[in-house]
């Protein structure tokens, strides 16, 4: 494991606290693991970001690896302490990070940016960013929460990843990673502060941005492939699907998988 304190930077950002303190490592196993270790062992200020040039064990969900070319993409983990969020309402964190990424990308890309439930960011049916949120629970509420974000920026070749794209591939131009980090920090912070006032403030926007919303799609449910129409998410974050007979049901992450 690398040292926790290395390459600390204080950035000039237009935020109150998000992204102001930045730790940077050229190469790291996973920024989420690094941030988690720091939170356990040090006093880490809310909004601190752990950033890497490349990750050799970049984490997707439980063991899936996120492939990234060195220094081409934005690989960051933000630390927040959303103690105001009860355990059963923490899907608002997914809404927060997904919508922040969508806003950043909406400014840059011409094509529509969509959220593939629960937290993959898609453009033109291709994945451009992924999110992995890892939290600690203290009793009934969230203690610390680490927002791991991988945003494909300047990488143009994705070997063995057929459904990936990047900002450079979509626009034909490269982009400065520091500028993106600054934009992302602002977008995260404004939504984080609005969540403090109202936990439901992001639900509608999230549902509106759902990938293939109101379109019939193939889903694998209970081992069977069926045609379903995604129409939104419920308060727990389950996807709400409507079947061909108009029956509406909610499904958890392991219960329904979209075929794309």
């Amino acid at each position: 494991m690398p040292s926790v304190i290395y390459g600390i930077k204080y950035l000039k950002l237009e935020t109150l606290f998000t992204g102001k303190i930045q730790y940077f490592e050229a190469e790291i196993g996973s920024t989420n693991d690094w941030a988690a270790m720091a939170v356990k062992n040090l006093k880490v200020m809310e909004g601190t970001v752990f950033r890497a040039g490349s990750q050799h064990q970049g984490k997707g969900q439980r063991g899936r690896v996120w492939a990234s070319e060195p220094n081409a993409n934005l690989l960051v983990s933000y630390v927040f302490y959303p103690g105001f969020i009860p355990a059963h309402r923490q899907f608002v964190l997914v809404q927060l990070v997904s919508l922040a990424l969508k806003s950043v990308l909406d400014e840059i890309l011409i094509d529509e940016v969509k959220i593939k439930w629960p937290n993959d960011i898609y453009v033109n049916d291709l994945k451009i960013a992924g999110v992995l949120i890892e939290s600690t629970m203290k009793g009934n509420s969230v203690g610390s929460s680490i927002f791991g974000i991988g945003l494909n920026v300047n990488q143009r070749i994705f070997e063995n990843v057929p459904n990936a794209t990047s900002i450079a591939l979509e626009t034909g131009k490269g982009l400065d990673l520091d500028r993106l980090l600054s934009d992302l920090s602002s977008q995260l912070e404004s939504r984080y502060l609005s969540l403090r006032r109202d936990l439901d403030t992001l639900s509608l926007k999230y549902s509106e941005a759902l990938f293939r919303k109101n379109q019939k799609c193939e889903y694998v449910i209970g081992g069977q492939t069926t045609l379903m129409t995604p129409i939104g998410v419920d308060q727990l974050g389950q996807i709400v699907l409507e079947d061909e007979y108009g029956r509406v049901n909610s499904y958890g992450f392991h219960e329904a998988r979209m075929v794309i």
């Binding site: 899907f91 949120i133 939290s135 629970m137 974050g237 389950q238 992450f253």
Partner: peptide, 8 residues
Amino acid sequence: EAMKLFNE
């Protein structure tokens, strides 16, 4: 884990 949110 719920909806890809991982909680220690």
